[in-house]
């Protein structure tokens, strides 16, 4: 495998992108999960799909744009989706979760239109839906790297504010923190990470890489930093094992990564139950 990675550029692209995503997706995922925003990640990934499908359609029909990388329109769609969701959440103050089905169905509806305009599914689109080991280009890798840099800078600047906002929103506002702006920035960064992750795990499974490692980490962690550390370890494990098995078994990496995450989660849940039972038995 290592030999193959050294030899083939496409494998390098896929693996390095995967390693980076395995860090940034669970890292932001911790904030998403504790703030109960998991479904928003799902909604945004479907909006991203609309951008991708739109881009594929445009490339098919306008020769000048034939080489346009769909990731860019995907990013634009995802970020606009995140801003729209915030608008809607403010409009329906008492039914904030209404924003999710509205944006999600909007995303799927647009995707369906673009897909049928582009005369149906093709392998390209399949690779965006479920991820791909072979389709990641050098350009995609650079985009992933740039987005990772944005995530790191954002967290270096706002980590303590994000923690307060996640733990106790009213307290954050009462302390005079610019809660609204930090939240909006956060949603935009989440949208960027979703767009970055889709190349490897695929649109339909992006949100699982943000939530499953966190779900496992929360079973074990007492503190916040600890939860982040565990989530990243589980995320990386899932990505590495998922990519290797996808490569050898010729499967879509989105599927293998998510199934690995679920296995890790099950393992953590069961082993925690067992240790608790042993402790009780020892008493």
């Amino acid at each position: 495998m290592i030999e193959a990675i050294l030899r083939y550029e496409f494998l390098q692209n896929a693996f390095f992108s995967g390693l980076i995503i395995g860090i940034i997706a669970p890292l932001l995922g911790v904030f998403i999960v504790v703030r109960r925003l998991s479904l928003i990640a799902d909604a945004l990934s479907h909006v991203t799909l609309a951008g991708i499908a739109g881009s594929l359609y445009v490339s098919q029909n306008f020769a000048a744009l034939a080489l346009l990388n769909p990731i860019y329109l995907g990013i634009i769609a995802s970020v606009s989706g995140s801003v729209l969701i915030e608008r809607l959440r403010r409009l329906y103050k008492h039914y904030e979760e209404l924003a999710i089905p509205i944006i999600m169905s909007g995303g799927i509806g647009l995707s369906a239109i673009f897909i049928s305009l582009a005369s149906g599914f093709n392998t390209d689109l399949m690779s965006y839906l479920f991820g791909s080991v072979s389709a990641v280009s050098r350009q995609d890798l650079w985009v992933v790297l740039a987005i990772a840099a944005v995530v790191v800078i954002f967290l270096l600047l706002f980590f303590k504010e994000l923690f307060v906002l996640s733990f106790d929103e009213e307290y954050a506002k009462a302390s005079g923190l610019p809660a609204k702006w930090i939240h909006l920035l956060f949603m935009i960064v989440v949208a960027l990470v979703i767009a970055a992750s889709m190349r490897i795990v695929g649109i339909l499974l992006v949100s699982s890489l943000m939530t499953l490692p966190v779900a496992a980490a929360m079973r074990l962690a007492k503190g916040f930093k600890q939860a982040i550390l565990y989530a990243i370890i589980f995320g990386e494990l899932a990505v590495i094992m998922g990519l290797v098995s996808a490569f050898y078994l010729n499967l879509a990496p989105g599927g293998t990564i998510v199934v690995t995450s679920i296995l890790i989660l099950l393992f953590v849940i069961v082993s925690k139950k067992v240790t608790i039972r042993n402790k009780e038995a020892a008493l």
């Binding site: 504790v34 109960r36 706002f158 923690f163 307060v164 733990f167 954050a172 302390s175 962690a221 503190g223």
Partner: peptide, 26 residues
């Protein structure tokens, strides 16, 4: 204040520390 999500992964020290957020500044 007790109505926070009780499954929140934070230690007591982390919660207390967060009280400095505004004082330290952005």
């Amino acid at each position: 204040s007790n109505a926070f999500n009780s499954g929140f992964p934070a230690t007591v020290a982390e919660v207390v520390k967060s009280g400095l957020t505004k004082k330290i500044g952005l």
